[in-house]
């Protein structure tokens, strides 16, 4: 009975994985433009948070931009109008997204499948409308020139390297929270709900409460990504609350591999890189990304990371 399961990674492998991730993250800004990297990291955290719902709970939210964007606006406003500490601004944005997640989640989890997706989309559209109408968001112009400020009054974040390392630290914290959640007693219940909800119910689990907590964690972390992004990019616009963004995160997750820890981050790197380097093609970017998505999903049904893991598993057994 000591045969190790071929599905599990050893503690050593996980440690090596984390060490590699940290090393690459620390070295990256010396090779690649830091602002671009910050965007990638924020979107990777956003997609990972989304994956906690889609990949590990089986809930397809089609309104996750609401959490990304609302947190971005709140953090941006707090930093710009009130001049609070950047960490406090980020926490404020995250808190608002978490509360919003609780409100939207409590109503949306009463339905499942396509209805769940439509309810989340409906709420996200309301948030979009508020972002257009409310005076503090700047409407069509958005919030521009958000100051990054000084971290704890000490470190000047106008320096892109300093800001990058803060973003990287936040990404690692968010990623660690997701990793732990998946591999926790709670995470096991989530997987059972995803696998077979009526059975989980028949074992005495109030599945709606578990779904709600997963939704709130996911919304909060999506907010953390959005708030951080607003400070890193120094602007917040309607793009982040638009339903395109809710669609984009589905795309990133599927492309990278839903239900894998690293998949959404890989998907985010691919999508953000394409958007960034293909801007010369103008509107054709959407078409190109669409084609990549179709080919990617047809050829790699489990996503890039999912297929790689599957290959590795076959190779080992």
């Amino acid at each position: 009975m000591t045969v190790p399961s071929p599905r599990r990674w050893s503690g050593q492998a996980i440690f090596m994985g984390w060490a590699t991730l940290v090393a690459v993250g620390l070295a990256a800004p010396f090779v690649v433009y830091p602002v671009f990297l910050m965007n990638v990291l924020c979107m990777a955290l956003f997609a990972s948070a989304f994956n906690l719902l889609l990949g590990y709970t089986g809930l397809l939210s089609f309104g996750h931009a609401a959490f990304l964007g609302s947190a971005g606006y709140v953090a941006g406003h707090a930093a710009k109008a009130w001049g609070v500490d950047p960490l406090l601004a980020i926490l404020a944005g995250t808190a608002v997204a978490t509360v919003l997640g609780f409100v939207i989640g409590s109503l949306a989890i009463r339905r499942s499948g396509i209805y769940f997706a439509m309810i989340t989309l409906g709420f996200a559209q309301m948030v979009y409308f508020l972002a257009v109408q409310l005076p503090f968001t700047g409407g069509e112009d958005g919030l521009q020139g958000i100051p990054r400020g000084r971290l704890l009054g000490l470190v000047r974040l106008e320096n892109s390297f300093a800001m990058y390392y803060l973003v990287f630290a936040i990404f690692l914290v968010g990623f660690a929270v997701i990793h732990r959640t998946i591999h926790s007693p709670f995470g096991h219940v989530l997987r059972s709900i995803k696998d077979n909800e009526p059975r989980a119910l028949s074992l005495g689990y109030d599945v709606d409460r578990y779904k709600l907590l997963a939704f709130v964690i996911s919304a909060g972390l999506a907010g953390l990504a959005g708030a951080t992004k607003a400070l890193a990019m120094q602007f917040e616009t309607l793009t982040d609350v638009h339903w395109h963004k809710s669609g984009e995160v589905v795309l990133m997750t599927l492309l990278g591999g839903m239900g894998t820890v690293l998949g959404p981050s890989v998907g985010a790197i691919i999508v953000v890189t394409m958007e960034n380097y293909l801007t010369g093609f103008g509107d054709w970017v959407t078409v190109i990304i669409g084609c990549v998505f179709v080919v990617g999903v047809l050829a790699f049904r489990r996503g890039f990371v999912g297929e790689a893991l599957n290959l590795a598993r076959r190779f080992r057994s």
Partner: peptide
């Protein structure tokens, strides 16, 4: 274990290790 886990009372603990 999913069935055994609930009476343990830790099923909402997303911060505990598996």
């Amino acid at each position: 274990r999913i069935a055994l886990q609930r009476p343990l009372g830790t099923s909402f603990r997303f911060w505990s290790p598996a």
